[in-house]
Design a protein around this nucleic acid. Structure first.
Length: 117
DNA sequence: AGGGTGACGGGCC
DNA sequence: GGGCCCGCCACCC
């Protein structure tokens, strides 16, 4: 939105958006996992940047991305954060004490969690 | 070219 | 568990 349209074609960001689209309904992932799954390990901030600058109109489950503690990373009382929580709960994701249990609802990919599955 | 900034994360107290 | 402190990638002056 606030940034230039040139960003919308940036290959790195495109990969992040594309990966985000694959997050299944009812699951959540973290910024770090999203970045890793997109091919950029240790670039969690990149994932946050990409989501923040998602091209208007692009259909993508941005609400399924939480921080590593299972919390919503948007400003606490903002309409955006409430919207995120509302959407997640509508998919059956449960919040306890403002947190989502990533072991229960976390999206598992082969690449970033070889220990599981 | 270099410094500041994020919807972040992991290591260390 | 909660702060701090860096490192991370890409963007912006």
């Amino acid at each position: 939105m606030t940034l230039s349209r040139k960003l919308w074609k940036h290959p790195t960001l495109v990969k992040v958006w594309k990966t985000a689209k694959a997050i299944p309904r009812g699951c959540v992932t973290t910024y770090g996992q999203l970045a890793t799954a997109a091919g950029f390990p240790r670039a969690a901030r990149l994932a946050g940047f990409a989501l923040k600058n998602t091209p208007p109109g692009m259909k993508l489950p941005w609400h399924r991305v939480l921080n590593a503690q299972g919390r919503i990373s948007l400003p606490p009382r903002s309409t955006a954060s409430r919207e995120q929580r509302r959407r997640l709960e509508a998919e059956g994701v449960v919040f306890l004490g403002g947190r989502v249990d990533l072991r229960r609802f976390g999206w598992r990919t082969r690449r970033d969690s070889p220990l599981l599955d």
